[in-house]
Amino acid sequence: MFVFIIRRVLQTIPVLLGVSLVVFLIMQMVPGDPATLLAGEGATKETIESLRHELGLDRPILYQYVDYVLHAVQGDFGESLRSSRPVLDEIMVRLPITLELALASIFITVVLGMIAGIISATKQYSAADISIMIVALLGISLPSFWLGLMLIYFFSVNLQLFPVSGWGTFSHMILPAITLGAGGAAIVARMTRSSMLEVVRQDYIRTARAKGLKEHIIIYKHGLKNALIPVITVVGLQFGALLGGTVLTESVFAINGLGRLIVDAIRTRDLPMVQGGVLIASVIFVFMNLAVDVLYRYFNKRIDLN
């Protein structure tokens, strides 16, 4: 297990390098010269030239990339073109909010999704199963930003139960967390159901029946644990979708998190900020995947054999 974790951690290094390279290359595709952009309108050629030199833009591209990575590793993602403050500082202000939102949403995804999936599977083809599956189908089809707006309309505007926007208290969290977590919950519910139904067909469930065990013991003791193993992977993947989804949810609910920071940065063409934001979100996701892999390994000891 320990060896596995070490090996898995080492494996993330090339992935992280790759991610930083992709982000770096994407920013190279930007039409126009960052120095010209930075210098602003009416800057003289000399100013632009000296700025290019200062930013290292006159050096070979590979050199620039290595330079970028070396700085990024030390937490230096450059300065925001808009506020002239270090990118990392601005991100660190916003990141806790986004992580809070993401955790609240993943809670909804996991708890709601699994419970619904288990009910569905144990009562296959019942009215409960059919309605859960219909809701889940809707769940994966609704645009989250629209769901958010409709929730605001019903619960905040009409019923005035929750604040329309902003962040800070528990009641601020509920609607955004549902908005962001609903799609994942639908996917987890579908996955849990099909996984449970698959497990129920296994020979060891027949063995459990042959022992004369009660149905609920068969399902919860012998079925659930096996059924949830593949669900763990799905939850891990959902975390990524969810982290990306904060961009939309934060925009709908006017939450000043990382997602909104990135979108605003794209609008104002604050490229270092976009670069830093996307990179940090990806790093978080990579480490989240690492954690999921370790968890998966822990629950599924059978991998030992392979």
């Binding site: 992935v15 994407i26 989804g245 990135i262 794209i266 996307v278 995947n289």
Partner: peptide, 21 residues
């Protein structure tokens, strides 16, 4: 490995980065 790297971007963020450029 390239595919792994593309999958390491959370959700829509890769698309967002491309559009930003």
């Amino acid at each position: 490995r390239i595919v792994d790297v593309l999958l390491a971007f959370p959700g829509i963020l890769l698309a967002l980065a491309i559009i930003s450029a």
